[in-house]
Amino acid sequence: MAQEALTALLDAAHAARGGLLARLHAESTDAYRLFHGSVEGESGLTVDRYGELLLVQSFHRTLEPAAVEAIESFYRSRIAGLKLVYNDRSAKNSRIGNPLSAEAMAIATTPVIAREMGVKYQIQARHDGQDPWLFLDLRAARRRVMAEAAGQSIKSLLNVFAYTCGVGVAAAKAGADFVVNVDFSETALKVGKDNAALNELPQRLRFIKSDAFAAMRQYSGIGQPQRVRGKPMPPFPKLEPRAFDLVFLDPPRYAKSPFGVVDLVNDYPALFKPALLCTAEGGTLVCCNNVAQVEREAWLDQLERSARKAGRPIREAEWIVPEADFPSRDGKHPLKMLLLRV
């Protein structure tokens, strides 16, 4: 794409966000998507702001140096002080493939602080993983969880597949007294611990390195077998049964577990049932599904049937929609978020 055409797309996207950015800045938020290429004219290209970091990522094809320069020049004229890092993720498995100069790598590997609704998050453009440490399209869900915590309707929260624990930190910041974050990555949990300290919240959060099924089965009282398919189970942290006011379930599309597989297309109920049984009677369960091909109404129907079968029918269901920096042509966002009263 010619530089002039790309600049025109960036300009249109920036103009469309004028009111949104003013509202976000007013609530102490400087982390948001500036360009959502799949809808705004250049599929596979995203531009995100995290504090002073401008993170440019391409998923379909490598950007030419002139295009990167055009992006940097455009946003330099709109938002002072941003430092650009470009991650080319167009190779297989979305791995970051492009080398950086020593100066650019220093910027990419130095943590910066981004703010969202007054909560501070540590962000690093390049690290051992490939995804950003804070998923911006999940802001709407973090906002809702914070509202629930601030309104005292939740005091305890279980955050499963917590990654860097953004939801848990936000809930604790808003007033939740007891927050448990479960993830199998020690590295991701370390970021969550740093964010808890950054927000002066370490006493309110617990971090558990564990398989999600193992944690949920123990909290729900289901228990777990010593052997699965003839193989002994690996050791997991011992957890006492406990019901939570809110359970937040944000699994990856597909992952293997000693208990089977995480499969958001074919078997979401395998995750949903233990999460539901960890939720207190009259509590709240927030479920996420980031697979674009999954139709949201069919998914909700699947969850309603699973809940009835488990003897915990859904009393109320509410869709949480990504905010306006993630526009959609037809309202069918790839990320689907459901708040369920159970």
Rank of each mutant, 00 (worst) to 15 (best):
Q3C: 14
Q3R: 11
E4Q: 14
A5L: 07
A16D: 11
G18P: 00
L20N: 04
L20E: 10
L21D: 00
H25A: 15
H25M: 12
E27F: 05
F35I: 08
E42M: 07
L45S: 05
T46I: 15
V47W: 01
L53M: 09
L53H: 01
F59K: 03
H60D: 10
L63Y: 13
A66I: 01
A70P: 11
S73H: 14
F74M: 07
Y75V: 04
Y75T: 05
R78A: 12
G81L: 11
L84A: 08
D88V: 09
D88P: 02
K92R: 15
K92T: 12
K92Q: 15
R95K: 12
L100K: 13
E103R: 06
A106T: 15
I107Q: 02
A108Y: 04
V112S: 04
I113S: 03
R115A: 05
E116P: 05
V119G: 03
Q122I: 09
I123C: 07
D131F: 07
W133Y: 03
D137A: 02
A141G: 14
A141M: 06
E148F: 13
A150V: 00
I154Q: 06
I154N: 02
K155L: 09
F161S: 13
C165G: 04
C165Y: 01
G166N: 07
A170Y: 03
A172T: 01
E186P: 00
V191D: 01
G192Q: 03
N195H: 10
L201M: 01
L205N: 02
R206P: 05
S210M: 04
Y219P: 08
G230S: 05
K231N: 05
K231Q: 10
M233C: 11
F236T: 10
F236Y: 14
R242V: 03
L246F: 00
V247D: 05
L249D: 12
P251I: 05
K256M: 06
S257E: 06
V262C: 15
D263W: 13
D263V: 01
D267G: 12
Y268F: 11
P269A: 08
L271N: 03
K273E: 11
L276H: 11
L277K: 04
C278D: 06
T279H: 10
T279P: 11
V286R: 11
A298P: 04
D301G: 10
D301P: 00
R305Y: 00
R305F: 00
A307D: 15
R308Y: 04
G311C: 13
G311M: 14
R312A: 07
W319Y: 08
A324P: 04
F326W: 14
S328P: 12
S328K: 10
D330G: 12
D330R: 13
K332M: 09
M337S: 14
L339E: 04
L340N: 00
V342T: 06
